[in-house]
Every structure is written in structure tokens, then in C-alpha cells.
Design a binder for these strands. Sequence first.
DNA 1: ACCTGAACACCGTTCAAGT
DNA 2: ACCTGAACACCGTTCAAGT
Lengths: 209, 209
Amino acid sequence: MSGRREEILDAALDIADEHGLEAVSMRALADRVGVTPMALYRHVKDKSALLDGMIGRLLTALLPARTPEDQTWEERLGALGHACREVTRRHPWAAHLLFSRPAVTPDAVRAVDIVYTALIDAGVPESQVPRLERLVSTFVIGFAASEASGRFSPGTLDPRSRRGQLPDEELPGHRRLAPYLDLPVDLTAEFEADLEDIRALIRAAAGRP
Amino acid sequence: MSGRREEILDAALDIADEHGLEAVSMRALADRVGVTPMALYRHVKDKSALLDGMIGRLLTALLPARTPEDQTWEERLGALGHACREVTRRHPWAAHLLFSRPAVTPDAVRAVDIVYTALIDAGVPESQVPRLERLVSTFVIGFAASEASGRFSPGTLDPRSRRGQLPDEELPGHRRLAPYLDLPVDLTAEFEADLEDIRALIRAAAGRP
DNA sequence: ACCTGAACACCGTTCAAGT
DNA sequence: ACCTGAACACCGTTCAAGT
């Protein structure tokens, strides 16, 4: 029950928030905790175990203390999705780590269970629930990771880079959509619209037993 | 036009395929090419530019030489999705890199354009096409990254880890779905089913102008 | 139990120098 | 133009030793 481990993990979170994940080294972490690098191995075993511990801390913060019973399945799914996106907006370095490790910690299993019960309540046939859970979580984590890594906003780097590198006649889609492509994107509204489309997909799956 | 750069990038791909992405160091790459580490900077500028160049090579291999005109939009979307998954199955280390960099290279822009035209042909209102392109690509890359990183198969590490860590009454979804949770998953079939659900989502978007 | 010092085998990158 | 050698400021981790 030693809070020492949590203290170390939280120090690592602070370093990542301030200077990025690549700044989280055993040596820098030891410095921050006020100890020699080797002392960390008493509490963490490994660098990769350290990273696992860090996302574990985030998952604990992400989850609702108790799943509210008075919400519809649509609301519970939306709340979990927004919570996930909120965590990766606060800790952009964490986004791609969510893809790296399977859902084996207790908190991650609880998150999966929330989606399972939402899908069951939606009326999805039980044999289809595990697949649709993976579809939903893949999309939500993928959106969060795309936003965090800047995949959704290439224009900020070089506004004209999307076109110009190729002759326009080879990009009929871009030419046709030109009026829409330079508009700023409201990712919060887009995420909500995406979630609504996913909910419709789930309703369709529920309606074909 | 010097093929020297491509030679170096392909050597880096070989190292990653054989020993993982973390084995791709400037020094190891220089050894493989038969040169001193510093000589690489003549052709690559940076380590991160090296990584960009590597995914660039993969994207070129992934794309169809010319978009076939005789396929339906459903077929073109499916072909691109399967090509993407195929690349990350052959090069698992590449999956999470696809999330890191925005689609700015000519090949990446061409891939986006293929999805744009598929969505336009499906009848999606033009104002909705960019959002749905991001939804589709996020899901496809997310699926590929999940599969490559093992996020979809936690059972291979520890078959009983999903349950057992928490009391069963806190995991009603898992308890209810128990008969389905230990079955082996056919990810090829699952990806196809997911794609079909996404296509239905697109048809729905096309039907509400 | 918990921590330290010194050491090993690595990194990416800069800089001046060579041909 | 293209490459090299030496150096700088870092890594994760092991191992024997200290309290």
C-alpha cells in the first residue's frame, strides 16, 4: 500500500506534462524525486512498467467512480468517450500509449465493461457486443490520438501543403471540396457528430438480430 | 534523384522489420549501410526526418498505382482499408507512426483524395465529406494500430487477466458475455464486418442531406 | 528494506577536418 | 559533394556495496 510508488508515477506525469514524454527518463525522474536513478527500480521494475503505471494513473482518473444508473446507454457511451478525449487533451503524450497496451488493468477492464453494458442495453445481440466494443473503443482512442498528435490539423504546419505538391487533376476530390477544405474545424462538434453516427450504427446493429 | 536516400530508407525498413523500430538507430543504420553515422546526415537531416521518410516509403507501396474506375465506392474504400491493414501486418512497428504525422506527403494526400471521391460518389453532402473522411481513416488506422500493438488480444499474455482482478459483481457486462469472451477472434472477418458497418454509416449520411 | 557509486553498453548530434 | 574522428551530453540497466 506504499504511496511511494504513486508519488513516483505522479512525478513522471508532471515531467511528461511539462516537457513531453521523451523527457521522462529514469535519471530525470530520479532527480525530480530527489533520489538516485537506481532507487527507482525498487518501485518500478522497468522503464516500460513505469509507462504502464503512468497510463494506469490516468485511467483511474478517467473513470466514473460509479456508473450512473439514471443515464441512457447513449449518455453513458458519450460520457466515457468525452472523458477519454478530455484526458488526452490534458495529456497529449498519453494518447498513443493507450494503443500500445491491452486492457488488462482493473480500471481498463471496468471501462470495457461500461461499453459492454451500454451495448447490451442498446439491444445489440450478445454475440456482436465484443466486436462493437472494439469498434467503438478503436474509434474513440483513435480520434483522441489523432487530435493529440496533430494528424487532424496539417494546415497549421503548412497551409498550402495539401495541394500544390501534386497537379490538381490528380486530386479530383480535393478540387471538388475546395470550398470546405480551408475552413477551421471545430473538433469538439466533430467528435459529437461522430459519436452520434456511431450510436446510429449501434442502433442498426441492435435492429438486425 | 539520387537513389542513395531510398537505399538508406530501405535499409532502415529492413532493420525495423527484423529487430523492431527501437533497433533503428543512426549508428546501427550507418553500420548496415557501411558508413559512419555522420554520413547519414547528408541524406536525412534528422532522426525524425528518417522516420518520416520510412513511412513515406510504405505509403508509396500501399497506394494503388491508379484508382480503378470500374469499382464501386464500396469496393474502393474496402481496397484502401485492406491495403492499410496489410501494410501494418507486414510492418507492425509502422502502425503508430501513421497516427503521428499528418497527411502532408503527396502519397498521403492521394490516399485522402481516394476517400474523398468515394464519399462523394456515395452521395454524402460535400460539407460532410471532410468529417467522414477523418472518421473513416481514424477507424482504419486505429484498427491496424490496435491489431499491430496487441491491444485486441490481451488473452495471449494472460488468459485469466480480464477477470479475477475485480469481483465479478462489478463487471456485469463481462459476466453476461462470458460465453463469447474466451472465443478466438478472427480479425480479418471482424475488420470486414466493421467496414460493412462503416459503409452503412456512410449510406445513412448520404440519405440525410 | 531501501538506497548509493561506479561502470557498461548504448544513444543523437555538433564541429572541425579530411578528400 | 561526400565522408570521417573525436567529442559532448545524454540514455537504461547491472552489480557489488553500503545502512
